[in-house]
Nucleic acid binder design. Structure first.
Lengths: 211, 211
DNA sequence: CACGGACTCCCCCAAAAGAGGGGGGCAGAG
DNA sequence: CTCTGCCCCCCTCTTTTGGGGGAGTCCGTG
């Protein structure tokens, strides 16, 4: 809280624009000090060790190992690490994954400066920070239907246009079983065909889409 | 190029972090001057009129009217407006839409500072700026399969899990016609079922996904 | 005007999908 | 130990899908 004991921050973001924006904004607060910057997840561990920051402000979208994985491995290595995740989006599954990986807070990049500073101070002192609306959505997610790992696998293949028979062969199970899983997913999603399930899966971030 | 004739920039971005980052970075260049900032598309027109900037640096993702629509209406009103679109992603369809809306350049936020400055100078003097890889992808897109409006409509309904019969009723056409359109789309996409088509459509940005 | 593209509809048909109904095994939690 | 959730398999059934053929209109461009 005072200049005598500033919050040391390790910044992790691959966009220089964002880094310079954060540096410019945060250095206006005399209790915040950015002591190191990383451009990718790979650099984080060693920078953490040398600078021992009070808080890691981490972008979720990072090239290579992403913010979630970085957070997870950082938390494993340094259990005291306090991570505030910082993302362009507020996707339910990402928030969930970030918190499970050990992040203490999740903030959208659209957040105002005040909120950012509040979140930093909260997380640096070991509190959990989540904006109201995010907290609400997270509750919905946790109470919502949970898709099993097997169902995820089938879903991923369905979204890639695979037929039940192909999926069965790929997974080494009977086609009937694939249909069974698919039906269960449809029910959980409240849809009634694979196209609808595909949309849902992509929307919920269960299935990633890439070229 | 000189301090006597700096490039006046209107910045449009809803994220204060990005704005302050850009201000911090660009003011290091003495031929660049940010003369105004807008947080949303609605503010752009009047700010443009009062400041008459040489360049508008516009974020594509804006709340309310997005960067593309804003660019389109700005270009209509002020034909001399030079817009450099600035986006987190490099989605083919967005690049295409941005250029069609009248933007002279498209830059990813992951761009380095050098590239940003280069792009700004290029666009401010009326040139078109597109990174190599983006230009290449754009060519692919233009030469690639073009989906007709009717096909888009059908695609959107397919992605929402509608059956052919439902789509036919919704559009007031025969189910056979829906199937015909669907088949054509499958062929154009190189997929063989509606789930695959849904993925493709979402990936290409033809179908939007929202809660 | 002729041509191509978009849109429309018709027919047929094999294959797949989706919704039921069974049942069994195996883990972890209570 | 029982119960629950996940995973697996088999069956039947109806509906949907997707591919093939052919064929008409309308519209804009060359």
């Amino acid at each position: 809280m005072s200049e005598l004991n500033p919050i040391h921050i390790l910044l992790v973001d691959d966009h220089f624009i964002v880094r310079s924006g954060l540096v410019a904004s945060l250095e206006l607060e005399d209790d915040l000090r950015i002591v190191a910057e990383a451009e990718c997840g790979e650099e984080v561990a060693s920078l953490y060790q040398t600078h021992n920051p009070d808080l890691v402000l981490m972008d979720l979208q990072l090239p290579g190992i992403n913010g979630i994985e970085t957070t997870a491995s950082l938390s494993r290595e340094f259990t005291a690490a306090k991570v505030l995740m910082f993302s362009t989006f507020a996707r339910d599954d990402e928030i969930n994954a970030a918190l499970e990986a050990g992040a203490l807070g999740y903030l959208q990049k659209s957040a105002e400066r005040d909120e950012l500073v509040t979140a930093i101070r909260a997380v640096a002192t070991g509190n959990i920070y989540l904006a109201d609306d995010l907290a609400e959505r997270l509750r919905d997610l946790r109470s919502g239907p949970n898709i099993t790992t097997r169902e995820r696998e089938i879903l991923a293949l369905i979204a890639r246009g695979k037929a039940n028979k192909e999926i069965a062969e790929a997974l080494g199970i009977a086609e009937d079983t694939v249909k069974r899983h698919a039906s269960n997913v449809f029910q959980k999603f409240g849809v009634n065909d694979r196209a609808g399930a595909t949309s849902e899966a992509i929307r919920r971030g269960i299935v990633k889409i890439e070229p």
